[in-house]
Simulated scan of single mutants.
Amino acid sequence: MKKLFTCLLTVALLALAFSLASAHDPSSAATPDPSPLQDFRVAVNNPNSAVDDFIFMGLDVPRNTHNQFGSNVTLVNVDMFPGLNTLGIALARVDYAPYGLNPPHIHPRATELLTVIEGTLLVGFVTSNPNNRRVFPMGLIHFQFNIGETNSVAFSSLDSQNPGLITIANATFGSNPPINPYVLAKAFQLDKSVMNYLQQKI
């Protein structure tokens, strides 16, 4: 009985210490991705094609930006580049036409570092309530907008081999099945007909 009590007391003290540390420093509550158990692991078991798993060509090639946003994202994650498997990283080339936009979106599993190679971008990041200040967070809304009259190019580094992407407008107004327009009208404090229009457009 005494051993059980000692064990329970130890667990309780450890839980309290963790709780106090988390309250003092919220970042300590989140645990990082586990370390890989090996240097690398390619996605295929064919040794004849293994060298191709470590080569990705074409990030130096400008992409077509003739679309409604005037931007084009070329993502390089583990699906396209098997050599990234277990390494916890991804990369993207983003091309922007003049006044092109990479619309508000989130990466639910990655922090992003953006390096502008050419042109000038307006970059915004929005934290969660209550202050909604601009920061550079993981999993929070951000966007890039080319404010110049020439093309712009940037490279994004992401700390996940599968960072994920949720575009806010598509997720809100283009979900399948669609979100009830009455819910959207109340959330945005707009008329239901506006919500119907946005859902049809997206």
Rank of each mutant, 00 (worst) to 15 (best):
N102M: 08
N77C: 01
T6E: 08
S193L: 11
N46D: 15
S128K: 12
G70W: 07
A12D: 01
V76I: 13
R93M: 01
Y182N: 13
R133Y: 11
L198V: 09
F18G: 06
Q68L: 07
V61W: 00
N67D: 03
T115D: 01
N162L: 07
D33Y: 11
F69Y: 15
A171L: 07
I168Y: 07
L84K: 06
P82T: 10
P181A: 03
L101T: 12
F143Q: 04
F125H: 10
A30L: 12
S193Q: 14
G174K: 03
P181F: 06
A43P: 00
I147D: 03
V135F: 10
S49A: 08
Q200F: 13
H24R: 13
D191T: 01
A50D: 11
L184V: 02
D53S: 15
V153R: 05
L37R: 09
S128T: 14
M138S: 14
N77E: 09
A169V: 09
P36C: 07
D60G: 11
N131F: 11
K3A: 09
G139E: 09
Q68N: 14
A23Y: 09
I202P: 02
G70M: 04
D52C: 04
L91E: 00
L75A: 01
I179G: 03
I166K: 09
V194F: 06
N162Y: 00
D79G: 07
I106F: 01
T74L: 15
L13C: 15
Q38S: 15
F188V: 03
N176T: 12
V183H: 10
P26C: 02
H105M: 02
N77G: 06
T10K: 03
N170I: 00
N132R: 13
T167W: 00
N176M: 06
V153S: 01
Q199S: 03
N132A: 10
H105C: 06
I55T: 10
S22H: 11
V61L: 05
N129F: 09
S35W: 01
A187Y: 01
L20A: 12
G100Y: 11
D79C: 02
L122S: 12
S27D: 14
S49T: 15
I89V: 14
G83D: 08
L16D: 05
E149R: 11
D52S: 15
A90K: 05
F40W: 14
T127C: 03
L87S: 12
I202H: 05
F136I: 10
M80A: 14
I89K: 14
N67S: 07
P36N: 06
Q68M: 12
M57F: 05
N46C: 08
N176D: 13
N45H: 14
N64Y: 03
H107S: 04
Q189S: 14
S27V: 14
H142I: 04
Y99C: 02
V194M: 07
L165V: 15
P36H: 00
N129V: 10
K2T: 11
A17N: 12
G174D: 08
